Computed example of a mutant assay.
Amino acid sequence: MSVNPGATGVFQVPSADPAVAECTTLSCELGAVATEPGAVTAVVLVGLVAFLAFAYVRDATDDCRRERTRVLAERDAFESFADRVSSLEPAPPARSTTAAFEGPVAGVRTVDRSSGDDVTLRRVLSAYRDTVMSLPHYEREYDETLPESLAAELGPDTATALASDRTLSAGAQSALVRRSRQAADARSSLADAIGTEIDALGSVDSELASVDRRRRRLIEHLDGIDRDPTDAAIDVWRRLDDLERECDALAGDRQTALDDPPLRPDTPLDVEGDRAFYEYLYGPTDGPNYPVLSQLAELADRIRSDRDHVASRLARGR
């Protein structure tokens, strides 16, 4: 899927020339806007009062919900695999010889090849195929063979120990169960973190809707005035300015949240460290990498457009 970089949420643009005297009065600011070439054309406010769709945030919420569902399915699959492995009867010690394996899987034994007894091994591999590898999204998202998946999820020494015609000792069985439950616990933590992000997106969506509702009502109020609208227009202009500042504050809050994610990876990822969680969530999607900031930028642009139209209306005296 394509990856589209999102807006960074920078709303206030200072003058490019610091030597230019700053316009600080309301009449000066309105006059500057109203005399811009694009602002003296006929203004039609119909349509500007419509609610924004906030598609970036709502699409991000849907993406997060789908990802959380997949993560929980993987958690359940690893728990099921651990349960099935723990129920197996390990190879009798008398029929095994200790194999030399490095790493934390100690006590793995290989069966005497002359016995041809690899039934336990086959049941382990079958259990893994029937649980972890049978997930609907597994092949599409991971595209790994069984040995590759075992190595990635449970350690390369595990894949080595289960290769060829080997079977499990009690120690190997214990290690497999332990690592499978660790994989399940890691996914539980990830699902919780995604749930935190879903809640955050819900809060942002409510705040955006509140700002946009007030924006719409201000324009509707101004459109409904039949008498001289000058005083009302100035008040609306000021309130729209306040709404833009509110967007700035929301963007600042989101930037802080991005720097303090609900989950940090235990191992380095090929993404910026503090943003790894959000890169994981939004990097593979078709939407912006920072949907909340992109949505705030869009809303702030609409507010500025409304404010420019109000200034133009003042300049025309109606």
Score class of each variant (00 low, 15 high):
Arg238Asn: 05
Arg239Met: 05
Asp241Val: 09
Asp242Val: 06
Asp242Trp: 06
Leu243Asn: 00
Glu246Tyr: 04
Glu246Trp: 08
Cys247Ala: 12
Asp248Glu: 11
Asp248Pro: 03
Asp248Cys: 13
Ala249Ile: 11
Leu250Ala: 10
Asp253Gln: 12
Arg254Pro: 07
Gln255Leu: 13
Thr256Lys: 13
Ala257Pro: 03
Leu258Met: 12
Leu258Thr: 13
Asp260Ala: 15
Pro261Met: 01
Leu263Trp: 02
Leu263Gly: 04
Arg264Ala: 12
Pro265Gln: 02
Pro265Asn: 08
Asp266Pro: 12
Leu269Glu: 12
Leu269Met: 10
Asp270Cys: 05
Asp270Met: 07
Asp270Arg: 14
Asp270Gly: 10
Asp270Ile: 04
Val271Met: 06
Glu272Cys: 07
Asp274Lys: 15
Ala276Val: 03
Phe277Cys: 02
Phe277Tyr: 05
Tyr278Arg: 02
Tyr280Leu: 10
Leu281Glu: 00
Tyr282Ala: 01
Tyr282Cys: 00
Gly283Thr: 07
Asp286Asn: 10
Tyr290Phe: 10
Leu293Trp: 03
Ser294Ala: 07
Ser294Phe: 01
Ser294Lys: 07
Ser294Arg: 05
Gln295Ala: 05
Leu296Asn: 01
Ala297Gln: 13
Ala297Asn: 11
Ala297Pro: 02
Glu298Met: 14
Glu298Trp: 11
Ala300Thr: 06
Ala300Lys: 00
Asp301Lys: 09
Ile303Val: 14
Arg304Glu: 15
Arg304Gln: 15
Arg304Gly: 14
